[in-house]
Amino acid sequence: MLRDEAGVSVVEFAMVLPVFMMLGLYGFDIAFLASQKMQVSQLTLSVADNASRLGQTDNNAVAPTITEDQVEVVLKGALKQAGQLDIANNGRIILSSLEYDPVSDRQFIHWQRCIGAKSVTSAYGNDSTNNGMTGTKMTGMGSGSNRVAAPTDTAVMFVEIVYDHPSVFPGFMSGPTELREEAAFIVRDDRDLQDPDEKGLTGTKKNACS
């Protein structure tokens, strides 16, 4: 029996199979995470770009004021664009209008609107109690060392998306991973920003972040 080598390769295969299966499943989970991170990143850029174009087709001689309805269209359109990511239930989109007040020499969040069921707030403040004019003074928005700052007489549309990425094999390989992406676009055309002490958007308030 000691010299009988029949079935040796089968035994070796049975020993290494669990290891290769674990590596394969883990690799698949990581690839799925990378794919969804890229989708969230692209969605963030798209929302910021679309928000920066609001009012661009207005042909009036007077710079247009952005409405609550227009912002709602951008946010709800993002939920449709997200598709299977299901941002509505698994994430949150935060759109902020970053502006500059030359009187006080401050960067501030003039208005901020959100959509999505995830309970999370902006990493940079809000449009009521901590908007840069009130609360801590802001140098801009962004997680990098060089923060995005709004120029005089215009605004920057700053978008944060926070998303709970579900593991392919929950409870086995890894748990949910929170993805956070940011993007910013300067407003593409003239826009009536209104005074800092006004709400900045016309119409009935929708998509509040509270």
Rank of each mutant, 00 (worst) to 15 (best):
M15F: 08
A184C: 03
S122I: 07
V19A: 15
N207G: 06
G83L: 00
R3L: 13
R191I: 10
N59R: 11
R53A: 12
S35P: 10
P151G: 04
A88Q: 07
N131W: 04
K37F: 10
D190M: 02
S122A: 09
F185S: 13
F108Y: 15
H165K: 00
D69N: 08
T154H: 01
V11P: 13
I161C: 02
N89M: 01
A183S: 03
I30T: 04
D190R: 01
T67G: 08
W111C: 15
I115G: 06
G7P: 06
L33H: 12
A78M: 07
N207L: 11
V73Y: 07
L79Q: 00
Q39V: 01
G140H: 09
D197C: 00
P196W: 13
N89K: 03
T154F: 09
M15K: 07
V73A: 09
M21G: 13
L25Q: 12
I161L: 08
F172H: 03
A117R: 12
V47A: 09
A34I: 15
D153E: 00
D86N: 08
F158W: 03
S210P: 13
L98W: 07
S46H: 11
R191G: 08
E99K: 14
D189M: 05
L33A: 15
D197L: 01
E12K: 12
